[in-house]
Design a protein around this nucleic acid. Structure first.
Ligand SMILES: [Mn+2]
Ligand SMILES: [Mn+2]
Ligand SMILES: [Mn+2]
Ligand SMILES: [Mn+2]
Lengths: 148, 148
DNA sequence: ATTACAAGTTAGCCATGTCTAACTTAATGC
DNA sequence: GCATTAAGTTAGACATGGCTAACTTGTAAT
């Protein structure tokens, strides 16, 4: 029958629009790790003057080889620069991405706290939510957070 | 040096707490596909009386073999029941998960719309956000959405 | 009853992201 | 300076989630 519906009932939501939503989520997930890494690397550099794989690993909650493999990928993508046994640097492109991600992250956290969430949970939820917030939504979150 | 800091500056955020946030995100992502599938299957069943792989594929925006493989995994996990060349059913466990996901999905969408987002973007963002919202956060979103 | 086509399955490829085990290099402390 | 130890790398395994190509099954129309 191939999803025949009688004509007068309201179309719940077109299949293609649905598909676009899921595709957007998958797209966000493809960028997610890169975003979290560059954001963290920027923070480590500003905090300690350098970003070492061991510190990245501790904060990401993964093992050193996982970090190594991911950093190789980010280097391939032009977001970080590295040399064997040295700490990691951001390319200009990576630094720009980090900056944008940091801003977005902070808006989401501020919003959640303003909503009434404790800061610890706000940080936790924000870490996932941030990657799925459209430009328009981010504006709305910022406006809400900035309310007097 | 291993991240030595002089003692009087405020600890920005402990590495282990950071790690827990990222681990929670990874955990959410492991459950995500199952949640989206059972939710969609429940919808298709209530709408058409059955959930066919071809309709799932159209709405998830993936190919038929991808759906087949995923459904096999969900069957292994006890969330769906299926027989070759037939449509898909939810186990009681799968139906319960679908119900919970549907409720959560609707709260997130209602919240975003109430914030001022257009319904289409609300659906798109909600599809990702829903998986990263803690119990406490969900309550806050519901309260906000329910405000007079 | 045949046939033609849509739906479903199977096999196999690939990238990602995690891990452990084993090895190499760099830094630190005598 | 040398030995010890911490950090980093490499190799290889495994699960996931996507794909295409090729095959099988079911069904609907003639
Ligand atoms: Mn994040
Ligand atoms: Mn996500
Ligand atoms: Mn979803
Ligand atoms: Mn959903």
């Amino acid at each position: 029958m191939t999803e025949t519906r009688n004509g007068d009932e309201a179309e719940p939501r077109p299949a293609e629009a649905r598909a676009k939503s899921f595709q957007a989520v998958r797209e966000a997930h493809r960028n997610e790790l890169a975003e979290d890494y560059v954001e963290l690397i920027a923070e480590l550099i500003s905090q300690f003057g350098e970003a070492r794989p061991v510190d990245i690993a501790a904060r990401m909650g993964v093992t050193a080889p996982t970090v190594a493999k991911t950093l190789d990928r980010l280097a391939r993508e032009g977001l970080v620069a590295r040399a064997p046994y040295r700490s990691v640097f951001l390319t200009p492109e990576g630094a720009a991405l980090a900056e944008a991600c940091l801003r977005r992250h902070e808006i989401v956290v501020r919003f959640l706290v303003r909503l009434g969430l404790d800061p610890e949970t706000a940080e936790k939820d924000a870490e996932g939510i941030e990657h799925h917030v459209s430009e328009r939504t981010l504006e709305l979150l910022r406006d809400f957070a900035d309310q007097t």
